[in-house]
Amino acid sequence: MIRRSIFLWIFIISVMGVSMFLIKHEVQILDAKLDKLHHDIMTHQENILILTAEWSYLNQPGRIESLARRHSDYRPTETKQIINIENLPYLKKSSLVRGRIDGD
C-alpha cells in the first residue's frame, strides 16, 4: 500500500518536474520573442518617426507648388470658375421640367 503510494508520488512529482521544465522552457522562448518584438516595435516606431518627418519635408507647400507647375497642367482655381448651381444659365428648374416632358 505504502509502496504503491510512493510510486504514485514519484510519478506525480516527475510529471510535474518535466512539465515545469517544459513550461519554463516555453516561457523562455516566449520571453525572447517578446523582447525581439519590443525591439522591433521600437525600430519600426523610430522608422515611422523618420518617415513622417520626411513626408512632411517632401510636402512643403513650396515644393509641391513648383512640382505641380512643372509636371501638371492644373492651375489654382480662379474665382470665376466657381459658381452657384442656381446661377448656371439654361439650368432653371422650369426649363429642366419642360425638357423632360418634351423628350417623352
Partner: peptide, 9 residues
C-alpha cells in the same frame, strides 16, 4: 496635423 517639429534620434 502637418508636422512642424519633431524629435529624431
Amino acid at each position: 496635423g502637418i508636422l512642424l517639429a519633431t524629435s529624431l534620434s
